Amino acid sequence: MKRISIIFLQGLIVLIGIVALAILIRLPLTEGRAANLDLFSIYLDPFILYGYATSIAFFAALYKAFKLLGYIGQNKVFSSSAVKTLKSIKYCAIVLSFLIVAAGLYIKISHNKEDDPAGFLAICIVTTFVAIVVAAAAAIFQRILQNAIDIKSENDLTI
């Protein structure tokens, strides 16, 4: 049953990645700043390019989560590579939260006075909060896992 749940979670991560990629490709064509632009100009818009650059941290964290589930499936959860993977997830979430806050501040400061940025800023607040929660959870799991590895190595030395 353990193997099935790990495969299910890995499939869920892949599905999240596919949906996020589809949103990144489709949404600029229909919404917001680029709704009236031609196909070439849409993908040269600086804010859309910033969104794509920001998504690199998101996809890196998804990849690392997929990799961590692979370690769990191979019973290598108590290894330094699993700790490094959790550390990478933590850093990706922190970088993502800073980049989202920067985008929110940019929109807040430079938006057209006729536009209402409240919806975008609400999305920024929620996604920043989620990224901070993910970073905190990864930091806690990293610390717990590192302590477990240290205790295990101490017990191996005394035997």
Rank of each mutant, 00 (worst) to 15 (best):
M1K: 09
M1R: 12
M1E: 12
K2M: 09
K2C: 05
S5L: 12
S5F: 12
I7W: 10
Q10R: 15
G11T: 09
L12N: 10
L12I: 09
L15H: 03
I16F: 13
V19G: 03
V19T: 14
L21N: 11
A22Y: 11
L24I: 04
L24S: 12
I25Q: 07
I25K: 05
R26N: 08
P28H: 02
L29F: 13
T30Y: 11
E31T: 06
G32L: 01
R33F: 04
A34M: 07
A35F: 03
A35S: 11
A35H: 06
N36H: 10
D38P: 07
F40A: 13
S41P: 01
S41I: 00
I42V: 15
I42D: 05
Y43T: 07
Y43G: 04
L44T: 15
L44K: 14
D45S: 08
P46E: 02
F47V: 15
F47H: 07
I48K: 05
L49G: 02
L49K: 15
L49M: 11
Y52R: 14
Y52T: 01
I56R: 05
A57T: 14
F58S: 02
F59I: 02
F59H: 05
A60Q: 03
A61F: 02
L62C: 11
Y63A: 15
A65K: 01
Y71C: 06
G73V: 03
G73T: 04
N75P: 00
N75Q: 14
N75G: 00
V77A: 11
V77P: 00
F78M: 11
S79N: 07
S80Y: 10
S80C: 00
A82M: 08
A82P: 03
V83M: 05
T85N: 10
L86G: 10
L86Q: 08
S88P: 00
K90G: 01
Y91K: 02
C92G: 05
I94A: 08
V95M: 04
V95E: 01
V95I: 15
L96E: 02
L96S: 06
F98L: 13
L99S: 09
V101M: 10
A102I: 13
G104V: 05
G104W: 04
Y106W: 12
Y106V: 06
K108C: 06
I109H: 03
H111E: 06
N112M: 03
K113I: 10
K113M: 01
D115T: 09
D115A: 12
P117D: 06
P117Q: 09
F120C: 02
F120M: 12
F120E: 10
L121F: 07
I123H: 06
I123G: 02
C124E: 02
C124F: 01
C124V: 14
I125D: 08
V126G: 00
V126N: 02
T127F: 12
T127G: 00
T128G: 08
A131Q: 07
A131E: 03
A131C: 14
V133R: 09
A135T: 13
A139T: 07
F141R: 09
Q142W: 03
Q142L: 06
R143Q: 11
Q146S: 14
I149H: 07
I151E: 15
S153Y: 02
E154L: 09
D156P: 00
L157F: 10
L157P: 00
L157Q: 07
L157D: 07
I159K: 11
